[in-house]
Amino acid sequence: MNHNYFVYILTNKNKTVLYTGVTNDLAIRLRQHIEWVNKFAFTNKYNCHFLIYFERYQYIEHAIEREKEIKGWTRAKKNALIEIENKEWKFLNEDILNT
């Protein structure tokens, strides 16, 4: 059986804040962030609902391990990771939500 788990990074409009998360459905989770499902969440407080990076994993354990790894990194290291796949920091929301 093939499973999909995602580690993702969101930012705010000015790209000054980063949030790293994990989910089994990237489109649904992105909609939840945009719709402010949890009004007291970090992403709402800092308006982080612009997707700029994601990775797919088959096993949840690997995704959680990667999420923890990235969360422990410096901002510079996170920036470098994002720029490997998304040099211009293009917001990827429409790519994910319209698939």
Score class of each variant (00 low, 15 high):
N2K: 12
L81F: 04
K87V: 05
T99L: 08
T23P: 03
T16W: 03
I52N: 01
R66E: 12
H3V: 00
K71C: 09
E83D: 10
H62S: 11
E65Y: 01
K78G: 01
T99Y: 11
K15I: 14
T16L: 07
N86S: 09
K77P: 00
F40I: 14
E67I: 04
R66Y: 05
C48M: 13
F40R: 15
T99E: 15
W36Y: 11
I96F: 02
F50T: 03
L92I: 06
K13W: 08
Y5W: 13
H49D: 15
Y53G: 03
I28L: 14
F91G: 01
I28M: 11
L97E: 12
N47Q: 14
L92G: 03
T16D: 14
T20M: 06
I82D: 03
N14T: 15
E55Q: 12
L18G: 00
G21I: 10
R31L: 08
N98A: 11
E94I: 02
Q32W: 07
K45E: 14
D25W: 02
I84K: 09
H62N: 14
T11D: 13
T43F: 01
N12S: 05
Y53Q: 02
E65N: 11
N93K: 07
N24C: 00
N44P: 00
E67V: 05
N44E: 13
T20Q: 02
K87G: 00
N79L: 15
Y59V: 09
T99M: 07
F6R: 14
Y53E: 06
N86Q: 10
N12E: 10
L81R: 01
A27D: 14
E85T: 10
V7S: 06
I96Q: 07
T43R: 02
N79D: 15
L10Y: 11
D25H: 12
A63S: 09
T99F: 07
F40V: 13
E88C: 08
K15V: 13
I60D: 08
C48S: 05
F6V: 12
N79F: 10
Y46Q: 06
W36R: 15
A80W: 00
N44K: 06
Y8W: 11
Y57N: 02
